[in-house]
Design a protein around this nucleic acid. Structure first.
Lengths: 227, 227
DNA sequence: CGCGCAGTTGACGAGACTCAAGCTAGGTGG
DNA sequence: CCACCTAGCTTGAGTCTCGTCAACTGCGCG
């Protein structure tokens, strides 16, 4: 990231944080609960989601190492978060971080960058949810996961799918059955192959991108600082 | 807003900005164009949208006075923006604002606040697009507009609808016809009344909120500073 | 007065959801 | 080491909501 913190600044951060590890399946943020803490993921994958009164679920994102969690509104968390693999994170008291931020504006700049990137991802997701077909959603999803892996210095293939089909469905605004059918269809066309339930290989990136709508993955990557 | 700028700071901002007025229908930001400028709306309503290759459109938001525009990625705008009423705004050169931000961290804090609020709105919209029925989307939309009006010190009713049915459809992930049918249906049930094509009155807020899923409008309002 | 666009209404069809069986894989215990 | 067990996945059949296509209405403006 372009405005990295200095060693001294990192040390100050370290002073107020606690490292922790939780197992898969643990819900460590609940929408509506008092928002006292912030989390910075260091490993594993987390699903962030919101529920409607009747239980319908929308996953708003899958978070990985480096992502921040704990967005709040009116003193309570704006969403729930559940580990879908074993997860490690740093935990901060909101009040402590607030004081630190006053002294280290750089933190604010970093957070602004993270927020902007999330906002752009959210807008891409709105296009997906509002206007794409099931097939297009699945293609976009696979490409986005692959692109994210590359950005993290991992190979583009195979694409890890730590979440269940149900989680994918709740992320893409579909049902488990439709996710399964679409994956099977893409496999049948030779565009992807599936390795067990939690990995896929993209065999024809071009064709998949054409289906997805050509915004190849999450998009190029970072935002340009300031709005 | 909680961290307002001082008069001196506002004056410094004023030095690098230009006020402007554009008429309805003008597209003043185009997705993919070089992102040299930032915009701060002072009046009117703007639709922000993204297009797919085949012309499908997703409106990601309707912006009003006080909102910032100009999010970019890789040096180009991440979305398009079109005035749906006559619009006034302040225009900044990105390069100039960047220099100013280095001197006035408060600006960054304000932008972080705006970004966070937009992010929360985007997450609510993802729930709407991914999991709500047409009827629920329309109910949510009307309540959100009404709540936003109240937040701006305007009456809750009637709700102004400056955009066309097509714009509403592109915002809610529906078609013009479905928007029209849903509005007619709610009117038939006595929950709302329609005044011409560009205003609605909410007659039964409770019933509408029950349909919408009870996150009454945009939600309480502001975020709590820091993630 | 009439043209034109926005909106409404209707008939029909398609894509995704629901409900219901089977199937697989990974983990457990014998 | 293997058989079982169960959650998760796949597949199928039928349904329904919403999209598509088309006609009509009504308002605003020249």
């Amino acid at each position: 990231m372009c405005h990295a913190l200095s060693a001294e600044e990192l040390a100050r951060l370290a002073a107020i944080m606690a490292r922790q590890r939780i197992e898969a399946g643990t819900t460590f943020i609940e929408e509506g609960a008092p928002a006292d803490e912030l989390f910075n993921l260091t490993g594993g994958t987390v699903k962030v989601f919101k529920l409607l009164a009747d239980g319908r679920c929308q996953v708003t994102g899958f978070m990985m190492a480096g992502d921040f969690l704990g967005l709040s509104r009116g003193g309570t968390y704006a969403y729930s978060a559940t580990a879908i693999t074993p997860v490690t994170f740093c935990r901060f008291q909101r009040t402590q971080l607030r004081g630190l931020v006053d002294e280290l504006p750089k933190i604010e700049r970093q957070m602004l960058g993270l927020a902007m990137n999330e906002l752009m991802a959210a807008q891409d997701q709105m296009v997906l949810l509002g206007r794409k077909t099931a097939r297009e959603r699945i293609a976009s999803f696979l490409l986005a996961l692959s692109a994210r892996a590359v950005r993290r210095g991992q190979p583009a293939n195979p694409v890890g799918l730590p979440m269940t089909r149900g989680d994918i469905a709740d992320y893409l605004g579909l049902t488990t059955e439709t996710v399964s059918r679409s994956l099977t269809q893409l496999k049948g066309e030779g565009l992807i192959s599936l390795k067990g339930n939690h990995a896929a290989t993209i065999l024809d990136t071009g064709a998949l991108a054409a289906i997805a709508g050509i915004e190849d993955g999450d998009g190029p990557s970072g935002f340009d600082h300031i709005t």
